[in-house]
Design a protein around this nucleic acid. Structure first.
Lengths: 130, 130
DNA sequence: CTGAATCCCATAGGATACTG
DNA sequence: CAGTATCCTATGGGATTCAG
């Protein structure tokens, strides 16, 4: 029984609460994990099957691959199609929602790619003046 | 002594490794945490001080506020200015790098805002067919 | 092959108390 | 006010094993 993660309405903490649970945070909490973005990227070219995704990502465990795909399916980013064959085959594919996400995702990816160098330099500079 | 997080080159796992440590992942690992994006958003309008940010975010602990700001500073997203006054005042402000990040960030935020409803519906639909 | 279940550890992140 | 240090819990996520 996978009880879905509750919405963080619990402990207020030492700063006075301010905004209601916002959509941004809700979305980011889901696709902000270690693998979601990578998987959506991998699925961008087209439908792929389980192990194919595993190979492409490289260092993801089967467990996390499975979990993350399920999350993405639940949230409506991808579809999961099972082919009742002898060695089972399952294919994943972006939904319209998933496709529509490619825009902002690409913006992010491109920015990261373009600015990675600057960031690394900043880190090194920071370390330098310890 | 805050030893910086190492680069995940350790255990290969059960899938054969595939890509070298990529910039995307490196960047996302940093701004993909629970608070970075929120803070960058908060700082978008202009420079703000520590407690001001804390109040705006609402449910962030002082500790995480401090840590996250330091991370963002290290990576060159923001600057930290200390005013040697009686009650100390510290202000944070986006750097050029931080500013340049607003583009992709806004894309993401707007998408999240626009599609949150659809996602929530997808989740509920999924729960329905248990 | 595609997962689910179990075990286990490392880390994120909150609470609190203390400092300059 | 703006942090830092300490402690502690919850969660993320890998490894391994089991199942259809």
């Amino acid at each position: 029984m996978t009880d879905l993660p509750k919405q963080r309405v619990d402990t207020p903490t030492n700063f006075p609460p301010f905004e209601q649970p916002c959509p941004i945070r809700d979305v980011l909490d889901r696709i902000g994990d270690q693998w979601s973005l990578l998987l959506l990227e991998s699925l961008a070219p087209g439908r792929k099957r389980f192990s194919e995704l595993g190979r492409e990502i490289g260092d993801i465990s089967k467990q996390m691959l499975s979990r993350t795909l399920k999350q993405l399916e639940q949230d409506g980013f991808i579809t999961r199609t099972v082919y009742p064959e002898v060695p089972p085959r399952v294919e994943y594919e972006l939904t319209d929602l998933g496709q529509s996400f490619r825009g902002p995702m690409q913006a992010l990816v491109q920015w990261a790619d373009a600015n990675h160098r600057v960031i690394v330099e900043a880190r090194n500079r920071y370390r330098g003046l310890d």
